[in-house]
Design a protein around this nucleic acid. Structure first.
Length: 566
RNA sequence: GCGCCUGUAGCUCAGCUGGAUAGAGCAUCGGCCUUCUAAGCCGGCGGUCGCAGGUUCGAGUCCUGCCAGGCGCGCCA
C-alpha cells in the first residue's frame, strides 16, 4: 500500500538534492512484512541507472545522510537489493489517531473533485419485470461508485434511464393483455417471445380489478396502449420498491420517451447530418463511426424510417453533456460493451471529448448453494430476483457481496457463506469488529465513550499490534482515493476486511484471562486513555467505510443463541 | 473470424506506478474458553501466478504469440 508521509518525503528530497538527484520521484510504501519497518522506499533502486552507481551503495549513502529527527523516524536500514526501510518513532505513528478523532465522520473524505458535477447512471432497467441479480450488482456497485465520488469531493447525480417505448414495451403489453384475457376466461396465448413470469399474471389480475372486462374484445392500439401504461406503472412501482428497500435512491429518472416527445432524437439526426459523416446506403441512414475507432459504421435510421437504438442513446448522452455533466460514469453489464465505442463515436462526431462517457462494466452474477447453482425464480420466469436474494440473506450482506469483487470479475455469490453469521462471512467480520469497539466503550463507562483528539499520549501504544493497527487506520483515506480513482468499491471492501482483521487481532490479544495487561480497560489511566483513543479511531474508520458502501455499522450485535440471556 | 473481459493455493478472490520470501478468507491439520473477548484467537500445511518467448538490475504486473472460459459482434433493444 502506498503511503503519504510528508516528513520522510521531505527529508529524502533534501538528501537526494545533495546527491545530485533532486528531481527523483519518491515512492513510499508500507511493507507487507513488518520486519521491513513501517515505511519503505525503492528510490535507491530507481536511481541506480541515473547515477550510474550500485543501488545498495546509493541506499547506504542516503541512510547515512538522512536527518532522522526531521524525518520522524527512529531508524533507517538498507535491505535487500537497496530498499530503505524506516521505522517511525512512536510519536509519529500515534499522530494519526488524533487526525482520525479530529476528522470523525469526515475521515477519508477529500476535496479532489473540487465540487465538479458528475453523473453516475446505473440500473437503468426496462420496466418489463422485476429486477434480477445483474441489476442488483449494478445497483450496489453504482451506488458505491457514486458514494466514492462524493467522498472524493465530486457533486454527484444518480440517474436511472429507462426505455418506455419500442419493441420490448409492445411485447410486454401484448403479454399482459394475453394474461388479462386468460384471467377473464378467454383462451389467448402469450406471444411466442413474450414475457412469461408469474408477475405478468399479477399485473393482469390487477388490471382486471381496475377495469373489469373493458379490453376483453378491444384490439385497438388505444386499448393496447392503456394496457402498456398500466403494466409500466405497476412494474416501475415494484422496481422502485425493490430499490428503495435495497437502500438505493436516485436523483432523477430519465424517460427514453421524453427524447422523442421533446424532439431530441430528430434534433440529433439534424446535427449529425451537419458533420458530413452521415450517408445513405441500401435505404438506411448510416453514421461513419469508424472515423472514431468503432469497428464498423452504424445504422441510425432503418429502411422503414424507424431509428435504431443507437440514435436515442446518442441523444440521451447529449442531454447529459448539455445538463452540465462534464463527467459521466455509466455502470452497465458487460454484455453492453459492444455499444461503448459506437456511443462514444456518435458523441465525438458531435464534438464531445473522446473518453465521454466513462464506463464501469461488470460481469455476470451466479448464485451457488451446497455447491450447486441456484437458477430459477418462478416469479420472474427466469433467474432469481434481487428481492428474493436480499430477503433471504439481508440487504447488508447482499450489497457487500456485490461490491467485494472487482467489476471485471465474474461474481460467484455463495449462499452458504452469505447465510453464515460468523466471522467467516466478511460482512459480519467487519460489523463485529465495529460492534466490539462499541462494546468496549459501553464497558468503559460514562464520560469515556467519546475520546478526543490530543487528550491521550499515543506513545504508550508501543505494542506491535497497536502500531500496525494505527498505520492501517491511517491508510483509509488512501484506500478511498484509490477506490474512487479506479471506480472500484472492492478496494474499500478489501481494506475493511484487513482493518477488521487487525482490529480483531488487537482486541483478542488483550483477552483479560490471558493477557490482561493488553486489554483496553486497564487500570493505568494514561494507558487506558491511549487505548480508548485507538478504539475510537477504529470505530470511526469502520463506520465510515461501511457507511460509504451503504452498509450499516451496528453498535451492538447480539448472538442469536444468547439473545434470551441478554 | 474479429473485439472486450477473465485465467494466481483444493475453493472463492486480492495483488497500486514493474520491486524484497506472491497475500487474504474458506477448507484441512495442531493448539487455546468460568470472556472488555469463542458468532472467537494463535500456529502449521498448501503456489511451474494458463503456456511459450521477449523487454530489464528486477515481471503475477509491460510487449508478442498461443491455449481455455465468459460476453459481444443485426436495418434487435
Amino acid at each position: 500500500m502506498t503511503v503519504t508521509n510528508d516528513s520522510i518525503r521531505a527529508a529524502l528530497a533534501t538528501v537526494l538534492a545533495e546527491m545530485g538527484a533532486g528531481d527523483a520521484e519518491i515512492q513510499l510504501e508500507r511493507p507487507r512484512d513488518p520486519t521491513h519497518g513501517d515505511v519503505a522506499t525503492n528510490v535507491a533502486l530507481t536511481l541506480a541507472r541515473v547515477l550510474g552507481r550500485k543501488p545498495r551503495e546509493i541506499a547506504e549513502e542516503i541512510a547515512g545522510r538522512l536527518d532522522r529527527a526531521a524525518a520522524g523516524v527512529s531508524s533507517v536500514d538498507v535491505a535487500g537489493p537497496g530498499f530503505l526501510n524506516f521505522r517511525l518513532d512512536a510519536g509519529a505513528v500515534g499522530a494519526a489517531i488524533d487526525d482520525i478523532l479530529r476528522a470523525g465522520d469526515a475521515w477519508g473524505r477529500s476535496g479532489a473533485g473540487q465540487g465538479r458535477r458528475v453523473m453516475v447512471e446505473f440500473v437503468s432497467a426496462n420496466p418489463t419485470g422485476p429486477l434480477h441479480l445483474g441489476h442488483g450488482r449494478q445497483a450496489a456497485l453504482g451506488d458505491a461508485v457514486a458514494s466514492l465520488l462524493e467522498w472524493s469531493g465530486w457533486d454527484v447525480h444518480r440517474e436511472f434511464y429507462y426505455n418506455d417505448s419500442g419493441r420490448q414495451m409492445e411485447l410486454l403489453a401484448s403479454s399482459v393483455r394475453a394474461r388479462y384475457r386468460q384471467a377473464l376466461g378467454r383462451d389467448e396465448p402469450v406471444p411466442e417471445d413474450g414475457y412469461r413470469g408469474e408477475y405478468v399474471k399479477d399485473v393482469a389480475d390487477a388490471l382486471v380489478a381496475e377495469v373489469g372486462d373493458r379490453y376483453l374484445d378491444d384490439d385497438s392500439d388505444e386499448a393496447l396502449d392503456a394496457v402498456r401504461h398500466h403494466a409500466v406503472k405497476m412494474l416501475r412501482a415494484e422496481q422502485d420498491q425493490d430499490l428503495g428497500d435495497f437502500r438505493v435512491r436516485f436523483d432523477e429518472y430519465f424517460l427514453e420517451s421524453s427524447l422523442y416527445a421533446e424532439g431530441r432524437v430528430e434534433k440529433t439526426i439534424e446535427e449529425l447530418r451537419h458533420t458530413g459523416l452521415v450517408y445513405e446506403l441500401d435505404g438506411a441512414t448510416w453514421l461513419r463511426t469508424t472515423q472514431f475507432g468503432d469497428q464498423k459504421d452504424r445504422v441510425m435510421v432503418r429502411g422503414n424510417g424507424m431509428p435504431t437504438y443507437f440514435l436515442p442513446d446518442v441523444a440521451y448522452h447529449m442531454t447529459k453533456w448539455e445538463r452540465g455533466f462534464g463527467r459521466v460514469v455509466n455502470v452497465q453489464g458487460s454484455d453492453h460493451h459492444g455499444t461503448v465505442d459506437r456511443v462514444r463515436a456518435g458523441l465525438q462526431a458531435l464534438g464531445l471529448p473522446a473518453g465521454y462517457p466513462e464506463y464501469v462494466l461488470h460481469q455476470m452474477v451466479r448464485v451457488v448453494q451446497d455447491g450447486e447453482e441456484v437458477k430459477f425464480s418462478k416469479r420472474a420466469g427466469s433467474g432469481m430476483t434481487l428481492r428474493e436474494l436480499y430477503e433471504q440473506v439481508g440487504v447488508d450482506v447482499t450489497r457487500y457481496f456485490f461490491q467485494m469483487r472487482k467489476p471485471d470479475a465474474h461474481l460467484l455469490f455463495d449462499l452458504d457463506v452469505a447465510l453464515d453469521h460468523s466471522d467467516k462471512n466478511p460482512v459480519y467480520k467487519v460489523q463485529y469488529a465495529h460492534a466490539r469497539m462499541c462494546s468496549i466503550f459501553r464497558k468503559a463507562g460514562p464520560g469515556q465513550d467519546r475520546p478526543e483528539a490530543g487528550a491521550a499520549d499515543h506513545r504508550l501504544l508501543s505494542h506491535e499490534l497497536e502500531r500496525e493497527l494505527v498505520q492501517q487506520l491511517a491508510d483509509f483515506p488512501l484506500a478511498v482515493a484509490r477506490a474512487a480513482e479506479h471506480t472500484s468499491p472492492h478496494i474499500v471492501c478489501d481494506y475493511l476486511e484487513q482493518t477488521a482483521g487487525a482490529a480483531n487481532a488487537w482486541y483478542h490479544a488483550g483477552n483479560p484471562t490471558r493477557n490482561p495487561e493488553l486489554a483496553v480497560l486497564v487500570d493505568d489511566p494514561a494507558l487506558r486513555a491511549a487505548r480508548l483513543a485507538l478504539a475510537g479511531a477504529v470505530r470511526i474508520v469502520l463506520a465510515n467505510g461501511l457507511g460509504l458502501l451503504g452498509i450499516e455499522a451496528p453498535t451492538r450485535m447480539i448472538r442469536e443463541d444468547k439473545e434470551n440471556e441478554e
